[in-house]
């Protein structure tokens, strides 16, 4: 506790990023340190440690100390530790979980394991202080395209997920085919603005009626075949048109299903999350669809959409408040179902 507020230290290391954050009363961010975005000079005064992607063991103590320092608190003030315990890469997850357990044991602090997806959804609570369940959540990222019905903070149901390539992956792959470089999503977004999204009709796969699942590998293949055929025929490609048309075929399906889910479950709020939430077309389509259907639309700022620990801290806070707490035998789970809990 500090200044009468309940402090949660969140730790995230499920894939690329090593991150730590301190939040007050769940939603107020006191610090949000992410390994790839750290301003190392100011924090470490000159000596630049090697901070690279997935160097979790090297980064973990630095991000934790950074989070405590920036929040102006010490470990003694921390009331709860939240850590992503799955799903993700085992070699990455275990660094965060091991460090979190050590802190919990040493400081005699309760610890809560958080599902990475639950973290993404919770980013919206930070971004919109007035947002409360129930609502429909859509998480769109490199590895996920999920629609979740959020009944309550700890009562969530996965309505649909990607059956093959996630939206972000498909974007990255098409970006590569078009020679746009990595990361592909933002590049496709930028290039698409110069193109005509109706120039080419890439098929949309909506799957069976009533399904909230997604399948983008068909579209991906369609675009690749189109590009290959045109190249073989010696035709010049209009990359901007391809990017725009491809992007539309993906984002349109996501927006449609998201709104359909909100309507079916009677939700008047729809929250977007995940790295692809930054996509301008997706945001525009969702805003339009929500407005047309009387649904309130929420979307956090970019830094909360990509992997970070503030969202984990927030999710942990609400889990703890509802009485969920884990023991010192908490384990990392590379495969972790998104159960209702």
């Amino acid at each position: 506790m500090k200044d009468g507020k309940f402090l949660t230290l969140g730790i995230e290391s499920s894939c690329d990023e090593t991150a730590a954050s301190v939040t007050a009363d769940g939603r107020q961010v006191l610090s949000n340190i992410i390994s790839s975005q750290i301003d190392i000079h100011t924090l470490f005064g000159g000596v630049v440690p090697e901070i690279a992607s997935r160097k979790h063991l090297e980064n973990i103590d630095k991000v934790i100390n950074g989070a405590l320092e920036e929040a102006g608190v010490s470990l003694d003030d921390i009331d709860l530790i939240g850590v992503t315990h799955g799903p993700g890469l085992i070699g990455a997850l275990l660094v965060g979980v091991a460090a979190a357990k050590a802190l919990a044991f040493a400081g005699d602090i309760p610890i809560v394991g958080v599902h990475h997806l639950h973290g993404h959804i919770s980013a919206n609570y930070i971004a919109a202080p007035d947002l409360e369940p129930p609502f429909t959540a859509v998480v769109v990222s490199g590895g996920n395209t999920d629609i979740v019905d959020v009944r309550d903070y700890n009562d969530l149901e996965l309505l649909g997920a990607s059956r093959d390539d996630a939206a972000g992956e498909a974007m990255d792959k098409i970006a590569r085919v078009l020679g746009l470089g990595y990361p592909g999503g933002p590049k496709i977004d930028a290039l698409a603005k110069q193109g005509n999204m109706h120039a080419i009709d890439f098929k949309r796969v909506t799957l069976e009626k009533g399904s909230y699942d997604f399948s983008f590998s068909g579209v991906k293949t369609h675009v690749i075949n189109y590009v290959n055929t045109e190249r073989q025929a010696g035709n010049e490609l209009n990359n901007a048109d391809i990017a725009a048309s491809f992007q539309l075929s993906i984002m349109e399906v996501i927006a449609e299903k998201a709104v359909a889910a909100a309507k079916e479950y009677g939700r008047d709020k729809l929250a977007l999350a995940g790295g692809v939430a930054a996509n301008s077309l997706l945001r525009r389509l969702m805003e339009e669809a929500c407005r047309a259907n009387g649904i309130e639309f929420y979307r956090p700022e970019p830094v909360l959409c990509t992997d970070n620990a503030a969202m984990i801290s927030c999710a942990a806070y609400y889990k703890f408040k509802a009485g969920h707490v884990d023991g010192l035998d908490l384990d990392a789970k590379p495969v972790l179902d998104f159960d209702r809990f």
């Binding site: 063991l57 085992i90 091991a98 040493a106």
Partner: peptide, 19 residues
């Protein structure tokens, strides 16, 4: 073991940091 090394060292770092 790569994962083994990480578990021990991350735990040790956490304890050392805390104490």
């Amino acid at each position: 073991s790569f994962t083994g090394i990480r578990i021990g060292m991350a735990t040790a770092k956490g304890l050392a940091l805390a104490q």
